[in-house]
Simulated assay, not measured.
Amino acid sequence: MTKVTAEQLATARGCVLGLMLGDAIGAAGGKVPAGGTLRVTSAGQLACFTIEGIIRANIRGTHKGICHPPGVVRHAYTRWAAMQHIPGIKRWQEQDWPDGWLAQVPVLASRRGSAPATVSALQSQATYMPGKAPWASAGAHGLTRSLFAGLVQGWGPQPGRFAAEIAATTHGPAAADAAALGATVIANVVKRQDVEKAVELAQRECQPIVTVLTGLPLAPALHAGRTRPRRAEVLAQLAPDARAASALAGAVYVALSYPDRSQLRDALLFAASVPHGKHVAATAGAFLGAAHGVDALPVDVVSRVELAWVADVLARDLLTEFADGPSGSGYGDETDPHWWERYPGW
């Protein structure tokens, strides 16, 4: 008997699948073909490994008692890079690595665009120290792949701080700040706030965390969404480049411009229509998918996303890990004898 509620599951599945759908629509520039598979980008691939890393970090903490969760998530990104045959990546063990079930998914070994900041940081093999990372990228991957830290706000670490630490394993302070804000928006949506209220709260809640995006950095996006919704020129002004802060502001504007669950498809097509809209679409998909639940996603397109099944399994397993602890612990027996094999706790 699982402790995961139907509402929690609908929110998590909507968030994860919404990001994948937004990523795929963004990759197509908002011009979705009538048939065929919709490919995600490296942003969607890395988001999958974030979830796997969060699960494995919790398992390690439960069984070993000592764990640095962002470091375990960074280890997940090295498995992605190894599967992609990216040179200069440290092997964590000679045999049976990369391990875990995600390493068996063929499409995750296929190149789907680049992630230069992430790859450069992983190749550097520098020792990650919180607040002292040597990299400075402000790119949107630091945001999009870290959003799911907000889904475990009831069980795990403070979502904003956790997301910032995940982003900081390969990106600089501005991207980490955007990740903190974005994951906190998700966490507030999980607590049944609408996106507008979730954003307002996130700005205040993240003030002790952020170092670059101080004050009320999303106020212009909120104001524009309320007063001038659905205008491509406004979205282009809010998201003028591929920085994490731009993707976040653009996603807030899109979510406020299309607040109804029946408008989710239109929201993602609109997000992807501007020059730097692909990361906006992915972030908006996560926000709106979490807000409206998985049943609001348009079946005819989400069913064509190449990582849809993988993303759905990961969303379910993320909640199952935190709510039910299938691998057991020193205080309880395992309920799934294969869980550790699927998610080795290291």
Rank of each mutant, 00 (worst) to 15 (best):
G156H: 09
G156S: 12
P157M: 12
Q158F: 06
Q158S: 06
G160L: 06
R161V: 08
A163N: 04
E165R: 05
I166F: 10
P173G: 07
P173R: 10
A174W: 08
D177H: 08
A179D: 07
A180Y: 04
A183F: 05
V185M: 04
I186Y: 11
A187T: 07
A187F: 06
N188G: 06
R192L: 12
D194V: 10
V195T: 08
E196K: 14
K197M: 14
A198W: 01
E200M: 14
E200I: 15
E205H: 12
E205A: 15
C206K: 01
I209E: 00
V210Q: 02
V210P: 04
T211M: 12
V212G: 01
L213Y: 10
T214P: 05
T214C: 13
G215L: 05
G215A: 07
L216C: 03
P217E: 10
L218E: 01
P220C: 07
L222P: 07
A224S: 14
G225K: 11
R228T: 15
P229F: 13
R231K: 15
A232R: 05
A232W: 00
A232Y: 01
E233G: 01
E233A: 13
L235Q: 04
L235T: 04
L238K: 05
L238T: 02
A242P: 00
A245Y: 10
S246Y: 14
A249S: 15
G250Q: 03
G250W: 04
A251Y: 06
V254S: 07
S257A: 12
D260P: 00
D260S: 12
Q263I: 09
L264S: 01
R265G: 02
A267F: 04
L268D: 08
F270A: 04
F270R: 06
A272G: 04
S273I: 10
S273C: 11
P275K: 14
H279K: 00
H279W: 11
A281T: 06
A281Q: 05
T283R: 01
